[in-house]
């Protein structure tokens, strides 16, 4: 029945030029594509460093890090980044105070107590929550959370640290919950059973066995959460106000680093002004903060990698 010889046809195809060229060029093309990610990093560093450098030829670096006032729009501006950093820190501290207990609690429940069905219902809800745009969270903060807080504590300003802080916290709950849950679920069942088999309760097992075993994953989820909170932009732009100050009062209006960048760029910062270059100095500071956080998180994951 064979009116063909396969090996012969295969031999003929062996010297097919197209196949050979494709085979040789694909890895090169893919490598070039991969280099875009490196170019992106180089682009970010180049952008931030070169423009920040110009900024510091005009404004003293010492003033930048020691001055406690940030007054960029005045005719006699002052550039004390501490005010903006303090704004960011207030938001971050409130956010993690909300996010860590709730996120970890949810992770414990999902990993150790929930039935499979509950887990399958709750996890998509957390995913939806993680996918809500920050501009929506910002609107929620200003139209719902702020009036709620002001209803209880009337002395709180319309723009304050509490409302955006809490909402940023809620925004990062899904991330902390899901990363911590992953870490706890990957503790092997034999370890869990070893503790439960001795008559320990679920709770004791969680705190004495599971959490210590999953510590590095849990802590790195906290660090990543902090990094997200530092870089969060829209919620604070909408609900935190635009008055930079270094005070610790969380009832007052404030401005974060990200909030400043949005405020300047949504007006017109004419190219070449001090104000324009200050964007990059603030962006650079912000970038360094998040970079350090990400590196800490990676270091924790690598350094304390659980071996099961």
């Amino acid at each position: 029945m064979a009116d063909y010889n396969i090996q012969e046809m295969v031999q003929k195809n062996k010297n097919n030029k197209r196949t050979k060229i494709v085979e040789k060029s694909i890895p090169i093309i893919l490598f070039l594509i991969t280099c875009i990610s490196i170019l992106t990093t180089i682009g970010i560093l180049y952008t931030l460093i070169s423009e920040t450098f110009i900024f510091f030829t005009r404004v003293s670096f010492i003033d930048f890090i020691t001055d406690t006032e940030w007054n960029a729009f005045s005719s006699d501006p002052s550039w004390g980044i501490i005010s903006l950093i303090m704004g960011t820190l207030k938001i971050v501290v409130i956010a993690i105070l909300v996010a860590i207990p709730i996120g970890l609690g949810a992770a414990i429940y999902l990993s150790e107590y929930a039935t499979d069905r509950t887990r399958r219902t709750i996890k998509p809800i957390l995913e939806i929550l993680a996918g809500i745009p920050t501009v929506v969270y910002g609107t929620f903060a200003i139209t719902f959370v702020t009036p709620l807080i002001r209803g209880i504590f009337p002395e709180v300003n319309l723009y304050n640290a509490i409302s955006p802080g809490v909402v940023v916290g809620i925004m990062i709950v899904p991330m902390i919950a899901s990363l911590s849950e992953d870490a706890m679920s990957s503790v092997p069942n034999t370890t869990r059973e070893g503790s439960l088999g001795l008559g320990a309760t679920r709770l004791e097992t969680v705190f004495k066995v599971i959490i210590p075993a999953a510590a590095s994953g849990i802590i790195s989820s906290f660090v990543l959460g902090i990094s997200r909170a530092i870089g969060e932009t829209m919620i604070v732009s909408i609900a935190a106000g635009s008055t930079p100050n270094a005070s610790l009062d969380i009832r007052e209006s404030l401005q974060t680093m990200t909030g400043f960048i949005v405020q300047v760029t949504s007006g017109d910062a004419s190219y070449g002004t001090d104000l324009y270059y200050s964007l990059y100095a603030v962006g650079m500071t912000l970038f360094l903060f998040t970079l350090v956080m990400n590196m800490i998180s990676q270091w924790i994951t690598r350094r304390f990698k659980e071996e099961y």
Partner: peptide, 13 residues
């Protein structure tokens, strides 16, 4: 993958 594309031959194979 070795370059045989004719449907008739593929069917036979």
């Amino acid at each position: 993958v070795h370059g045989i594309k004719k449907k008739k031959i593929l069917d036979q194979i």
